[in-house]
């Protein structure tokens, strides 16, 4: 009989999306069995922190469901969204391996599920499996390269273009292959934080896009009706 305890509602590591393209892609079956049996799994409500900036890491998190924003507190005490995480992403490994505190917070944008793997188990894995270490380094490197095209570059464009690009970015990150229209529930504060503008400005430009029937809104929900037009707007000043 298998000694693996099945965590209800959470995937086994052997079949999880975190394994496919991420840090655990080159793990042996026995290694995944150990992780599965030792990990803890948590459901986070919208707005709940998975970890907080400034706290000490004790392990890593694998996001299995939901959308997460990664935020930093700026010099004026304002929250700034620096990137987003999606199911399959691993969070917190850099802080853990460098023995430093988290330099950002991970906050659930909607109900999320994440598995926590302890520092001990993760260090064991890296020390015994050099391919896992390589995959981790590759992920760090990709994150740095992606940052060149990330939100930080939005600052040089006009706000309307930045909002269009931010919506496209979200669609590319969270959109599903067969869905006809992309929708996301995102507060106006979060959208404003993404593009580095005031909430009122974000609302004004969203209204413009809505009037032009490029998007529709319902409460905090934003639906992209005309992605091609949105792409054109985002590239207007390129």
């Amino acid at each position: 009989m298998s000694s693996i305890e099945i965590k209800s509602g959470f995937p086994e590591c052997q079949t999880c999306s975190c394994k496919k393209d991420g840090i655990f892609a080159h793990c042996a079956l026995e290694e995944l069995e150990v992780i599965t049996s030792n990990k803890s799994c948590t459901t986070y409500k919208r707005g709940q922190a998975i970890f907080q900036e400034g706290n000490k890491p004790f392990g890593i998190f694998c996001l299995t469901e939901g959308k997460v924003k990664i935020t930093k507190i700026g010099s004026e005490g304002k929250e700034q969204i620096v990137r987003f995480a999606k199911p399959g992403d691993t969070l917190g490994y850099r802080a853990l391996m460098s023995d430093t505190r988290y330099s950002a917070s991970a906050i659930a944008l909607e109900e999320c599920k994440a598995c926590f793997i302890s520092s001990h188990d993760f260090n064991e894995l890296i020390s015994k499996n050099y391919l896992v270490a390589k995959d981790m380094m590759r992920m760090l490197s990709n994150a740095l390269a992606d940052a060149e095209n990330s939100l930080a570059h939005l600052a040089t464009k006009p706000v309307r273009e930045r909002i269009a690009e931010a919506l496209i970015l979200l669609m590319r990150m969270y959109g599903k292959p067969n869905e006809k229209q992309f929708s996301i529930s995102l507060s106006r504060e979060d959208l404003a934080s993404m593009v580095g503008t005031a909430k009122e400005t974000a609302i004004r430009f969203l209204s413009e896009l809505k009037d032009e029937e490029i998007i529709s809104t319902h409460g905090s929900n934003i639906t992209i009706l005309n992605p091609d037009e949105l792409v054109k707007i985002s590239q207007m000043y390129d």
Partner: peptide, 28 residues
């Protein structure tokens, strides 16, 4: 060395992770 020397591997991982602290794109 990275493949066969565990201490070397862990040293490289820790050093690179540390050097990336605060760099754009490496927030957590």
């Amino acid at each position: 060395l990275f493949q066969h020397d565990v201490t070397f591997r862990m040293s490289v991982v820790k050093l690179i992770s540390s050097e990336m602290t605060g760099m754009k794109g490496s927030y957590e």
